Simulated assay, not measured.
Amino acid sequence: MNKQLIIAIDGYSACGKSTIAKDVARILDYTFIDTGAMYRGVALYALNNQLIQGDVILTDQLADSLPEIQLDFKKNSETGKRHLFLNGTDVEEIIRRPEVAAVVSKIAAIKEVRHKLVASQREMGKNGGVVMDGRDIGSVVFPDADLKFFVTADPLIRAERRLREMQSKGIETSLESVLQNLQERDQTDRTREEGPLIQTPDAILIDTSHFTRESQLEHVLNIIREKFGD
């Protein structure tokens, strides 16, 4: 392919969309942009600065603080992978913790937060050669993306995957707790006013419930080859 594509991958949490996006970016030698990590970064900032009190997010104060929030993807010298940095600090592991997961969908529903991050994401991907995953990439960030996927999976399978991921990082929780969190996030993502999670008519649906990592990658690559050649 001579053209540098913009590939948008949207879908539910823990359905494998980030894994697909990372693998496709690696094969194509494209840049992978994890937009969900960016919202988690803002959520972490809000938690660290007491802008979330109980179930209440101090929305006006957070909106006023947005100019102070600098989010960058940089290569980690130890892992060789691109990590999210929040105001110069590597927060890739911290943003995966349950306390961040519990509030990120509410943070992502805030209009001012979405406007700031969508603008950043458009700037990152404007020249193509990117695989970007999130909730509203094909519908809002890049509605004219060259190729769009919408990824889903059975909720229980998603919860089991997320539980294994968390346990591998030493985070102790239960399947019931993880499933409840995912269901609450799904509801928030689907019903928010700003950039709700939807499958656009031109997005290709992929159900990863019974795919392995290798088979889902091959499936997506086959679609890319069919549309754009090798």
Rank of each mutant, 00 (worst) to 15 (best):
N48I: 06
N48W: 14
N48Y: 15
N49G: 06
N49E: 07
Q50L: 07
Q50S: 14
L51F: 11
L51A: 07
I52Y: 01
Q53T: 12
Q53K: 12
G54C: 08
G54T: 05
D55L: 07
D55F: 08
D55P: 01
D55C: 02
I57T: 11
I57H: 03
I57V: 15
L58P: 09
L58F: 09
Q61P: 10
A63V: 14
D64V: 13
D64C: 13
D64R: 14
S65V: 14
S65E: 15
L66R: 07
P67G: 11
E68S: 10
I69E: 06
I69V: 11
I69H: 02
L71S: 08
L71K: 05
L71M: 09
D72Y: 12
D72P: 05
D72N: 14
F73H: 11
K75T: 13
K75A: 11
N76A: 05
N76P: 04
N76W: 01
N76C: 03
S77Q: 14
S77N: 13
T79D: 01
T79C: 03
G80R: 04
G80V: 05
G80Y: 04
K81A: 13
K81C: 06
K81M: 09
K81L: 15
R82P: 02
R82S: 10
R82N: 14
H83I: 02
H83R: 00
L84I: 07
L84C: 02
F85S: 01
L86N: 09
L86Y: 08
N87L: 08
N87S: 02
N87E: 04
G88S: 04
G88T: 07
T89C: 12
T89A: 15
T89H: 11
D90K: 00
D90C: 07
E92L: 05
E93R: 09
E93Y: 03
I94C: 06
I94T: 08
I95C: 08
